[in-house]
Design a binder for these strands. Structure first.
Length: 467
RNA sequence: GGCGCGGUAGCAGAGUGGUUAUGCAGCGGACUGCAACUCCGUUUACGCCGGUUCGAUUCCGACCCGCGCCUCCA
């Protein structure tokens, strides 16, 4: 087994070596819950869902932690705008996120720590940093990290600390010793959300919570840390600085970052306002189409969210479900059976190569071809085996979980027609064909086609799906 | 200005120092009452210029173009 992982820190693929044999401890930066999760969040969550599924499939004992940031300035501002306690907002958004995850077939992480449940751990870590002179309290009551003191600062994002100032984009703050310093603890007014600390009433900065929660749950050193592409700097750079200064240990061995999601070839961002929430997308496309769209690219490649690309993803997924249509009752194959599959090695090699799901999908297309050929040739036993394999591999990617018939027929009703209407027309067409009245038969087929219903004639009869 | 990523056939998107990616679309054939589905076959590539090499899309260098981060953002 030669798992290769691209690490942002090394800037190349590396052979994966666990800290503890057979075990992988993974931490992924989750969402700040002040709004509904968007398609960029979906990408990160799906990417790591696939990664964790595959690692477990490969026999690793994985501990997967993904945090929830449930206290920060954006949350407080939004809650104030809404005129509600911030906890009401976060609880609602956390529920919504979980709902989105379930729809997309994302398994929950093993641990889902919340910042507000770890305030003591955060304070402890800040105190350690203060004691070590890696942090200081400014006269405005905030506690800042002393970037200058951490000589490795910049190693993840490839930045020279001295040059960070050159861009003049760093927020200048008279309270900081150095403009590069960042907040570990923010003082708060009496009426604001906060906690008691050695530095007074306040709340944690953004970066420190991940250092505290990851080391608290996974240890001072762990194997993999992941997140979205825009977290490399400053968030993850700061996490390294905080964690390694606090523990004096090497923090993380492999840093994994997903690629960006673009919308119609423009960067999707909060500031541009061109982002789509997961629930907006799910209102238009079957959840698994969205998942298939994401899995169809390598997790590190930039992807472009567009109508055309989603339709293409749907067509691609349709092919799989069409092939599985007559095998709804076949159980997914276990790993031991999958080893016998003629595409096993291609699938495994693809996924071992930095989780190349697109290449893995090519292997599954080959399986579909074999399955269709076997079904066509009437080789029922062989077809059953191939269908079971297809479902088994699909489970590793989190695909093909829906009932094929339900997937292909889509949500009812199709336009103003119910399934019964459609089936009545199909029956009428069959009778017309038996009567050799092909004019009437074709007329019915055209009528249904105009409503997006595609008919497929087989020896056993006629089935339909939305086109 | 600093750091980094990428340019593959009509589209999407993998990969490789010499041998078919894959899917969709196109074309030809089988199947069909005709189609659809499916199967078989098949046409379109590797930004530009040099270099290394027996041979480069694949390695090296320059160039052009696009993109990202450097600021809250997954």
């Amino acid at each position: 087994m030669t798992l290769q992982i691209y690490s942002t820190l090394a800037r190349r693929k590396e052979m994966f070596k666990p800290i503890e044999p057979g075990k992988i401890r993974l931490y992924v930066c989750g969402n700040t819950v002040y709004d509904f999760a968007h398609i960029g969040h979906a990408r990160v969550m799906v990417a790591f869902d696939v990664i964790v599924r595959y690692l477990r499939f490969s026999g690793w004992d994985v501990t997967y932690a993904r945090n929830i940031t449930d206290i920060d300035d954006k949350i407080i501002n939004r809650a104030n705008e809404n005129g509600e306690p911030f906890t009401a907002l976060t609880e609602r958004m956390i529920d919504a996120q979980h709902e989105d995850e379930r729809a997309l077939g994302i398994d929950p992480p093993d641990i889902e720590p919340r910042a507000t449940a770890h305030i003591d751990d955060i304070i402890d870590m800040i105190q350690t940093l203060v004691d070590n002179h890696y942090a200081y309290m400014a006269n405005n009551g905030d506690v800042y990290y002393r970037v200058k003191r951490f000589s490795d600062y910049g190693k993840l994002s490839g930045r020279n600390p001295d040059e960070l100032l050159a861009g003049a984009r760093v927020e200048v703050d008279e309270h900081k010793e150095d403009p590069r310093d960042f907040a570990l603890w923010k003082s708060a007014g009496a009426g604001e959300p906060g906690w008691e600390s050695p530095w007074g009433w306040g709340r944690p900065g953004w970066h420190i919570e991940c250092s505290a929660m990851s080391t608290c749950h996974l240890g001072d050193s762990f194997d993999i840390h992941g997140g979205g592409p825009d977290l490399v700097f400053p968030h993850h750079e700061n996490e390294i600085a905080q964690s390694e200064a606090a523990t004096s240990k090497h923090y993380v061995n492999y840093w994994m970052h997903a690629g960006a999601v673009r919308v119609d070839n423009e960067k999707m961002s909060k500031s541009l306002g061109n982002f789509f929430t997961i629930r907006e997308v799910l209102a238009r496309y079957h959840p698994e189409v969205v998942r298939f769209f994401l899995v169809s690219s390598h997790y590190r490649s930039p992807i472009n969210y567009s109508e055309a690309n989603l339709i293409e993803a749907r067509n691609g997924l349709d092919r799989f479900y069409s092939a599985l249509r007559d095998f709804a009752s076949v159980e997914a194959a276990e790993k031991s059976e999958l080893r016998a599959s003629q595409v096993f090695e291609q699938f495994q090699a693809a996924m071992d190569d930095d989780f190349n799901s697109r290449e893995a999908l090519a292997a599954l297309h080959e399986l579909v071809r074999l399955l269709n050929a076997a079904a066509r040739a009437g080789e029922q036993d062989r077809a059953d085996v191939l269908a079971a394999q297809l479902k088994g591999f699909g489970m590793v990617l989190g695909l093909f979980r829906d009932d094929p018939e339900r997937y292909l027929k889509g949500a009812e009703p199709e336009g103003d027609m119910t399934a019964e209407d459609i089936e009545a027309l199909i029956e009428e067409r069959l009778q017309a064909r038996r009567d050799r009245d092909f004019g009437r038969a074709d007329q019915i087929r055209d009528e249904l086609a105009a409503r997006g219903i595609v008919l497929e004639d087989t020896r056993e009869g006629t089935s339909w799906r939305r086109g």
